[in-house]
Design a protein around this nucleic acid. Structure first.
Lengths: 254, 254
DNA sequence: TCGCGCTATTTGTCAGACTATTATACAGCT
DNA sequence: AGCTGTATAATAGTCTGACAAATAGCGCGA
């Protein structure tokens, strides 16, 4: 069978700019970005299906499938006669990975970033505390291996960032709480997008390893409170770095 | 308002619980329930579009739109030649309102409920603390009004439950953190589904008002820590009630 | 044994017609 | 005049049937 087939790097890298091969996917992406970036505000009604699909040079069914995707994520709502209109913000699935990705494709507001970090600051330390109580030896070993790799490669390389992801993912898995995993995973992935800004800005100003090791040690020792505090510091420092990088770079690129 | 018609083709007795109006919606719902309930396990491939749509007596496009919805929520993944297969669980958007609803339509496992409450226990107290620091007078007034209404109507009535929702929603809004709102709103809505079990089981064993008022008082006074602790107690008691109701009702069919 | 191209299967896309729903305007009634 | 019910028109929803594109798996040949 195809067990080790899941290379990972290749499959994910294919979601680069432009489109994802499938028409309905790229239309959903384009519309989604237009919505989360405010080009289409809540309450606005989109062109009817015929006009819209003509303007985009696609068939009506492809356009409709794109709309279904957006509707599934709470961004729009369709009704006969009224048309398809952008839903109020409180209906949006702000934690959906794709929606988050769309936010980050159109320079999210600093306030939004702030809110995400705030949520991360609530969730990840709690996750670390749970992990300290529930991790098993195999997970512990994977965390250590990830940190070792991360230390060797540094966050400047793709492999290093993958190791970082691996560490955090294993911490989450160790909580044995599936909803918590998907949540924190989404936030983490989104926030890690900002790493690109940081990297592009200049060399990483701070060595993240000591803080990571403190989290690991606390989890290994089974000290929940200590793990929580260590993770709090870690996230806090990441926030500082990101905020500094953003303030130093008020110019938008395109 | 009569639900007249429906006779028509006659052969579509397949349409269960009746509503959702839109075909693609009900198909997505049916398939979604089948997936989250384990009838289709991760890795399983669904029938190809032609067979499936024939078996359901719907057109291929309607079926495809249903699949797009499920794919948008991470439940399935479609590729040419391979077909559409159920995604691994860690891809599922467990916090999506519809996915949660589907879980609760097919008696969720106790473990899953436990995990949801655990997450709620992490998020809601933190939200209460933030609300205590950021609420404005108008929000405060709406919280008070909601609690007064809740006290009059009790949780046994629809109006009383609406007031409960209103209270919690206002607390969330007061955090001024949009992602936190959508998250906690989803969890709250899902967990409140269990209220039905509780009600069905017997009279509500405990008066929830004193704990609600304590949360309110702390938020009104701007005492973040106090609000956090009060909300912790509130959620904890809800968990106890739910767990008791479930254990008292082990009636398992199928 | 290994690699390369063929093919069959499945999703993806397209086009056009018809149906269902409903907001709105309008006529009719009180 | 004000209200009520109905006709109308606009739009999403559904269906049909066809063709295109991608690709997993197989067989062929080096």
């Amino acid at each position: 069978m195809s067990k080790a087939k899941e290379a990972g790097a290749g499959a994910d890298a294919e979601r680069e700019e432009g489109f994802s091969g499938r028409i309905h996917g790229s239309i959903a992406r384009a519309l989604g970005i237009a919505i989360v970036s405010g080009q289409h505000q809540p309450g606005d009604v989109l062109n009817n299906e015929i006009d819209a699909s003509e303007k985009l040079h696609v068939s009506r069914s492809a356009y409709r499938e794109a709309i279904r995707i957006l509707a599934a994520k709470g961004l729009v709502e369709s009704r006969p006669k009224t048309g398809t209109r952008v839903s109020p913000r409180h209906r949006w699935s702000l934690l959906d990975p794709e929606v988050l990705a769309w936010f980050f494709e159109s320079e999210p507001s600093e306030a939004f970033l702030q809110e995400l970090y705030e949520l991360r600051m609530i969730v990840e330390p709690a996750a670390a505390a749970l992990a300290a109580e529930r991790r098993d030896d195999a997970q512990l070993e994977r965390m250590r291996a990830a940190l070792v790799a991360m230390q060797h490669e540094t966050l400047a390389t793709e492999a290093g960032q993958a190791a970082d992801r691996d560490f955090h993912d294993t911490v989450l898995e160790a909580t044995r709480n599936a909803p918590l995993c998907t949540l924190s995973s989404s936030i983490g992935a989104a926030v890690r997008w900002t790493t690109i800004f940081k990297q592009r800005d200049r060399e990483l100003p701070r060595d993240p390893m000591p803080d990571h090791w403190k989290v690991f040690d606390a989890i290994a020792a089974g000290r929940a409170d200590q793990a929580r505090q260590a993770m709090e510091r870690l996230v806090n420092l990441a926030l500082d770095d990101t905020r500094a990088a953003i303030e130093r770079r008020p110019g938008r690129q395109s």
